[in-house]
Design a protein around this nucleic acid. Structure first.
Lengths: 335, 335
DNA sequence: CTTGACGACTTGACCGGTAAAGGTATACTT
DNA sequence: AAGTATACCTTTACCGGTCAAGTCGTCAAG
């Protein structure tokens, strides 16, 4: 049987409430001497506040939910999760994983029934969650997601990021540049759209319309097809939608005898697994940690003001992306 | 203001308790007609049980904690986490991440104060946690960890796994085989010990004592040193402690002009990132999903019987490992 | 006709904290 | 000396469920 404040109260000879005051450091409610006595006894008895009772009474669980879609994306998210946990622990909060499977109604109630104080929604956005959040005015932040609804959201400047990427490849002398991404799946990341559009615009501007070659494919097939092409017809550079796809493609290319960057320059986005590949991938970094920090701040702000609710101002925050040049891209041989 | 059972009770014209009975499908306490009426009203009013109140009253949170050490290990754990979440959701539970930083006393109380019903401890084991768990008889399972204390634990058969690996390399004709691992850090995985010992034993048995060359090093340095060695003195095969280290080493080797498997066969353990490398890594798979399943079962068993506590029988469960041959190992040129 | 069993509720207490209002004594005004 | 502020504690109620015991008809058995 665990120790409760009642036990301490009896032991010290004061009321429950006095103990509560003392242990919560409420100022001016308890004399210093009794406070010390109470704290000492609590420590001696090994008291730990019952977390369930406390969150019930306080109407706050100190838990933040992370809502996310397909579990396969976990690797991509490991940075996010790890930094998020870190950040939350600094403010004495914890992270609950809330997989979003099936229709919103099936699981979204978990965000309203008190198990979490607020939530962070991560890519890919479960269909209809923005509606749900807006409707119930839930404390939530959409991380790296875009929604038209007035929900707090933080995302990256993919337009600039893609511009940097294309510029990098152009500067290296590449002309046959392909944008590469996987088929669009339900709830797909908006980033792809922005990156793709920017790529197209940049290519057009550079007068390379005829080779605006966008591929949405299956990896193995694609590598095979590239290998069969005559090198003079093959793209000399590929800009992949993200690092994970880029690295996977790099492997397939290797299998088919195309070596990066000797035969083909390849780059990705996100700077997540980019460092692990051979060769290390040139990429456009998305500052995940900054994003997490901002998400947490925004979320705490919402939770704090939960009562007054002075209509939240929903300015989507946009974070900058930066080019990181590694070894998977190189200049065209000057011929 | 959220709907509570009290509201429903008033609406239907019955007592709170009747509503509770009806909604929890307690048999023989409520007539079918009122039950239906209650359920219908609850649905109409959009009732959702207050999760905080419920877990307080039931003394059960339906939350399982995942205790883990250094956050850097997150990638390795993504399979575990993703499958664990999946599995828990099937039994209506959720996963809370509990990072173990600093001394046990600082955070282990979280496992006792009711925020989780039980926990799964993952690699690396926080120092002293087994003692804590044993002492307080907490519902917990140590996943892929070994402890001498009587705590429930599930781990892999690393002896057999390492044997398979070495046999594989020997069969390919390799003789200069090196076991490669990173310097031992606090709370290091026991697997390394078992794998290393088995490697040594196998090599001795094969009469290759003189070349029992175990390296514990820094990656970049090591690749450099290998590159500087004369190929005839260099190991022809490296068995890395895990895939992550193996892949990282592969990259460094590539940088220094040593190509896998042409110049050197390389393999790892775990089959986590093995498929992503170029070339795909030969590895010894550790069946994470099986492990998770067993962990969950074991944990639920403990939680269920929490009251009677018929002294738990602590038989460490051992799961088999299997060899997966991919493209990073090949036969020695027959000379 | 009584007794007992049972089904279908209701009542009151309780989980372990917290919030708010309610005493006292002491000190400080005026 | 009466009024009032203040410091320090206690009392009571409450959060929203659940548990266990109690009530009250009804119906069957004795």
């Amino acid at each position: 049987m665990a120790i409760t404040i009642k036990h301490i109260a009896e032991q010290v000879g004061v009321s429950k409430q006095a103990v509560s005051y003392a242990l919560n450091n409420k100022p001016g409610q308890v004399s210093d001497s009794t406070r010390k006595k109470i704290i000492k006894t609590a420590q001696e008895m090994g008291y730990r506040p019952n977390w369930r009772a406390r969150s019930f009474a306080r109407k706050r669980s100190q838990i933040i939910g992370l809502v996310y879609g397909r579990p396969a994306h976990y690797i991509e998210q490991s940075q996010l999760v790890s930094h998020l946990v870190q950040r939350l622990s600094e403010i004495d909060h914890e992270l609950l994983l809330i997989p979003a499977m099936g229709p919103v109604e099936k699981w979204a109630h978990k965000l309203r029934d008190g198990r979490v104080d607020g939530c962070l929604v991560s890519h890919p956005m479960p269909l209809g969650l923005d509606t749900f959040v807006a409707e119930h005015q839930l404390p939530a932040v959409f991380a790296n997601l875009k929604s038209d609804l007035p929900v707090p959201q933080i995302c990256f400047d993919d337009v600039t990021g893609a511009r940097l990427a294309v510029e990098h490849l152009l500067e290296l002398g590449h002309r046959r540049i392909t944008y590469y991404c996987m088929p669009k799946r339900h709830g797909e990341h908006y980033s792809n759209e922005d990156r793709l559009q920017t790529y197209r615009r940049m290519m057009r501007k550079a007068g390379l319309d005829q080779h605006v070659d966008v591929v949405v494919e299956d990896q193995e097939d694609y590598a095979q097809r590239l290998a069969e092409l005559d090198p003079s017809a093959r793209p000399t550079a590929i800009l992949a939608y993200n690092d994970l796809d880029a690295v996977a493609l790099m492997r397939e290319l290797w299998v088919h005898g195309i070596e990066v960057p000797r035969d083909l320059s390849l780059m990705g986005f996100n700077d997540d697994v980019a460092r692990q590949s051979s060769p290390p991938l040139t990429t456009v970094a998305t500052p995940i940690e900054d994003m997490v920090d901002q998400c947490v701040d925004l979320l705490m702000e919402q939770i704090g003001q939960a009562k007054d609710r002075p209509e939240r101002d929903i300015q989507p925050v946009v974070l900058p992306e930066t080019l990181i040049v590694r070894d998977s891209t190189c200049a065209m041989p000057s011929d």
